[in-house]
C-alpha cells in the first residue's frame, strides 16, 4: 500500500516535467542560413546579423507567426513566414531554414 502511494507521488512529480517540453515554452531551435552569406537577416523586423549559418530559437509565445527577411544590395529581398506547425514539421524532418536570394 505504502509502495503504491510512493509510486503515485513520484508519478505526480514526473508528469508535469514531461508536460513542460510538450508545451514548447522554450521554442524550437533551427539552424538558419542565407545565401549569399553576407546578406543581412531580420527576424520579426529586428536585425539579427548576417546570413552565415547559426541556430535560432523560434518562439511563438508572443505571435502565432514569425517572419524572416533577408536583404543584400545586389539581390532581391526575400521574406518567409513561419507558423508553429511549419517549424514542427521542419523539426520532425530535421530540415534547416535556408533562404536563397535572387540576383537583381
Amino acid at each position: 500500500m505504502q509502495k503504491t502511494t510512493a509510486r503515485r507521488s513520484r508519478l505526480l512529480l514526473v508528469l508535469p516535467l514531461l508536460a513542460l517540453p510538450a508545451c514548447g515554452g522554450a521554442g524550437y531551435v533551427r539552424v538558419m542560413s542565407v545565401n549569399p552569406p553576407d546578406a543581412s537577416v531580420y527576424i520579426n523586423g529586428e536585425r539579427v546579423g548576417q546570413g552565415s549559418s547559426r541556430p535560432y530559437t523560434f518562439d511563438f509565445t508572443t505571435s502565432e507567426r514569425i517572419y524572416v527577411q533577408a536583404t543584400h544590395p545586389d539581390y532581391q529581398p526575400e521574406i518567409e513566414w513561419f507558423t508553429k506547425e511549419r517549424i514542427e514539421q521542419m523539426v520532425a524532418a530535421n530540415l534547416d531554414v535556408k533562404i536563397t536570394l535572387r540576383p537583381r
Binding site: Y42, N44, G45, E46, T62, S63, E64, R65, I66, Y67, Q69, T71, Q76, P77, I79, R104
Partner: peptide
C-alpha cells in the same frame, strides 16, 4: 496581417528593374 502577427512590421522594398 493577422491580429496575432508580430507588432513590428518591417518592409524591405526592391528597386524597380
Amino acid at each position: 496581417l493577422k491580429l496575432t502577427d508580430p507588432k513590428r512590421q518591417l518592409f524591405i522594398l526592391a528597386r524597380k528593374s
